[in-house]
Nucleic acid binder design. Structure first.
Length: 589
RNA sequence: GCGCCCAUAGCUCAACUGGAUAGAGCAACUGCCUUCUAAGCAGUAGGUCGGGGGUUCGAGUCCCUCUGGGCGUACCA
């Protein structure tokens, strides 16, 4: 479809320039960027639309006169360019009707040859892109906020890879700091050496339990905070006992978190640990001080002044010489570039840190790193509850595993209600995939920048504009394809594009042909929501068609075979798109 | 105070990045399962795109301003 649009654009541009020349106007006044090829709002209007408003002024004539003029030129000597059947002039719009069988044939062929690669491209083939996401703390299990982060990061990585980029996904595990010591302290004082197995808890939940216990403890014992702080000091000094405890609890936390990743289909190429990199930025800051990029206050603290670019002054090293969050991020960015030189580095981090990343990127640029301008903060909105923000201390967080369990249970119930346990076979596995589909679609469908409100009652739905609806569309097509054996006269035929004559079929063909452009747009804007909404549109369009027209049992076996072929195209696009959104594909549900 | 983000149907979200009559889902009401899976399809109802200015052939989309909300603005991470 992109090809047609581009060809048409060139053709119209040429016509406009010739027209201008003939009228003694300067053809340079016709600018390519003013010319757009759009999709008309109603299919009856045409397949492609060219608004001619922008050129009315240059030609000093009403746009509708201009559009008829361009139309006449397009049709010179009774022959329209290849692929274009006819055109119509509706006011200022020049609407183009494409040759349906030609376009349909092209789609069939392209999907058949490309299969799982349909929609992929090489637009980013020269790029090495690092994507950092998730970044969990090791004092508690993952929650709904992480799930949005993970869904975005994983999906963006897949989309970029599909667009030809060499992608490396990395996870920076925050395994150090006062919050970690808090759960350690509670365990030391209240744990009695128990293990997750003793309590029958998933290991990260076990650790999280002690973080909650710490907060209860701190309420009745004001000195708990001091003891936690003391533990952090000991940790930094390398106290063997504290380190042992730290290692044990981190192992539990990380093992549990990794199990959740596995469950949600999240993959990382490399893990970084804050405990190993948190000292790295210090010497960079000292170097910057020497070069005069930073300055030192009387108390010894080191600062950067970013007021000239509308930001504030920022401390980079404390007066006692220890480093801060930014310091560490400066260090890790530099060492990552050394590890794996990238063209683009994407940080998937919530919007609350917008300012932090502005500061970080400016500092790196100031330090003279060329690649700093290729750092990108993929910021996304918060996940709130109807009653407000999630707060781990107040126990209002939605736990990731619990949420998935609940969704899985609901999906199982749904399968049982529909009495489809027999067909489905693996009840647990299928329900789990439906749960993931529902979750990932729910999290990826809104634009990343928007805050979302998670209302458990309303959000956990499998009907309407949801992941399972898309999965269901795919499963129904699969089921239909399986039934091909029952109609051998259809099975042995191959479809012909010219057999597809309904408006719904043509709508589908055009929509499916937009898929590669959708992927490309999602890739360059790092925005999976475009794809999510597109897949819904495809499912919706197919469901309507499927309901209106018999496919396997169409009156004519040739028509039936062609419809099957079209359905297979829909299936392929759904499959490819779902993979990019990390929504499991289901043959049966 | 200052900075960034957000505001579209009762609720949750779209709108091809400035184009034709602003679309879906949920919730409500009404039809459709002896017919390729009813997790579906069709219909009814629901809108001064937060208010006001401006830019232009044309604005939900860009600019200004006001209002309301979120997040920042730490020698926390």
């Amino acid at each position: 479809m992109v090809v047609f649009k581009e060809q048409l654009k060139q053709k119209i541009l040429q016509i406009l320039k010739e027209l201008a020349q003939r009228k003694g106007l300067d053809p340079e006044g016709i600018r390519a960027e003013h010319l757009s090829v759009e999709n008309p709002p109603k299919p009856e209007l045409g397949d492609l639309a060219i608004p001619l408003f922008p050129f009315a002024k240059v030609f000093r004539m009403p746009p509708q006169t201009l559009s008829s003029l361009v139309g006449e030129e397009l049709q010179q000597k009774d022959s329209l360019p290849e692929g274009i059947d006819r055109f119509s002039i509706v006011g200022p719009y020049l609407n183009i009707f494409l040759n349906r069988s030609l376009v349909t044939g092209l789609l069939f062929q392209q999907i058949r040859t490309e299969g799982d690669r349909f929609g992929s491209s090489s637009i980013l083939s020269s790029k090495r892109i690092m994507v950092e996401f998730s970044s969990p703390n090791t004092n508690k299990p993952l929650h709904l906020g992480h799930l949005r982060n993970d869904a975005l990061g994983e999906s963006v990585a897949r989309i970029l890879r599909f667009s030809g980029a060499t992608v490396r996904t990395v996870d920076l595990i925050n395994d150090r700091g006062i919050h970690i010591c808090k759960s350690m302290l509670a365990y030391q004082e209240l744990g009695h050496g128990r293990t997750p197995e003793d309590e029958g808890l998933k290991s990260d939940h076990f650790v999280g339990k002690y973080y909650v216990l710490y907060n209860e403890l701190a309420k009745r014992d004001p000195e708990a905070e001091d003891r936690a702080r003391n533990m952090l000091v000991k940790w930094e000094q390398g106290d063997p006992e504290v380190r042992l405890l730290w290692e044990k609890m981190n192992r539990w936390a990380i093992e549990g978190i990794k199990r959740t990743y596995e469950r949600t289909g999240i993959h990382f190429d490399q893990f970084y640990f804050e405990s190993e990199v948190y000292l790295k930025g210090k010497e960079e800051v000292l170097k910057g001080l020497e070069k005069g990029i930073f300055y030192q206050e009387a108390d010894g603290s080191i600062w950067v002044n970013l007021e000239d670019i509308g930001l504030d002054r920022k401390v980079l090293l404390r007066s006692d010489g220890t480093s801060l969050y930014v310091t560490q991020d400066i260090g890790t960015a530099i060492s990552r570039y050394k590890d794996w030189p990238f063209d683009v580095m994407i940080y998937v981090v919530a919007s609350e840190q917008n300012y932090h990343f502005k500061v970080l990127f400016s500092i790196l640029e100031r330090l003279g790193y060329e690649w700093a301008k290729n750092l990108y903060h993929l910021s996304y909105g918060m996940v709130n509850l109807p009653e407000g923000k999630m707060k781990s201390r107040e126990g209002t967080v939605v736990d990731a595993d619990d949420l998935l369990d609940e969704l899985t249970e609901m999906a199982k119930e749904e399968i049982r209600t529909k009495e489809r346990e027999g067909e489905v076979g693996d009840l647990e596995g299928t329900a789990g995939k439906i749960a993931l589909g529902a979750l990932h679609y729910y999290l990826l469908q809104p634009s990343p920048s928007k805050d979302i409100v998670f209302n458990p009652r309303e959000s956990l739905s499998f009907t309407g504009n949801t992941g399972p609806y898309i999965q269901y569309t795919g499963a129904r097509i699969c089921s239909m394809v399986r039934k091909l054996d029952e109609v051998p006269q259809v099975k042995e035929r191959t479809g012909k594009p010219s057999d597809l004559n309904t408006g719904e079929e043509w709508e589908l063909v055009k929509l499916l042909f937009e898929f590669p452009a959708m992927v490309e747009q999602s890739a360059i804007s790092y925005n999976p929501s475009l794809l999510a909404n597109y897949l819904y549109e495809v499912s919706k369009t197919f469901s309507r068609y499927y309901h209106e027209h018999p496919i396997l049992f169409a009156e004519n076996p040739d028509v039936a075979a062609s419809r099957v072929q079209l359905s297979r195209c829909v299936l392929q696009v759904l499959k490819n798109g779902m993979h990019l959104l990390n929504i499991p594909f289901l043959e049966v549900m």
